[in-house]
Amino acid sequence: MISVIIIITLGILMIIAGIVALHLKNLLAAIITAGVISLLASVIYLILGSPDVAMTEASIGSGLTTIIFLYALNKVRKEKKDD
């Protein structure tokens, strides 16, 4: 029963984060919000009984993917400064 409540709460948070991430004008904030979705998803995988997937999602989905997005944004901004 408690796991159902946790999944519903996290799910509402994730859906809000998804809508917010697509509508924010600031790209940096949008990228961080998209990383939060992956971090919350890793808790859901843990409740659904697959800790392997939870570890992978926490390290790859919310860690490395966010970093790579930020590096790409950094490169785009640097190009803008050069001209």
Binding site: L22, I31, I37, G61, V76
Partner: peptide, 16 residues
């Protein structure tokens, strides 16, 4: 970049 963010949200949804 927003389109790529949308792609990563689709990814998470399919995994769940």
């Amino acid at each position: 970049i927003k389109i790529v963010i949308g792609f990563s949200i689709v990814d998470t949804g399919v995994h769940i």
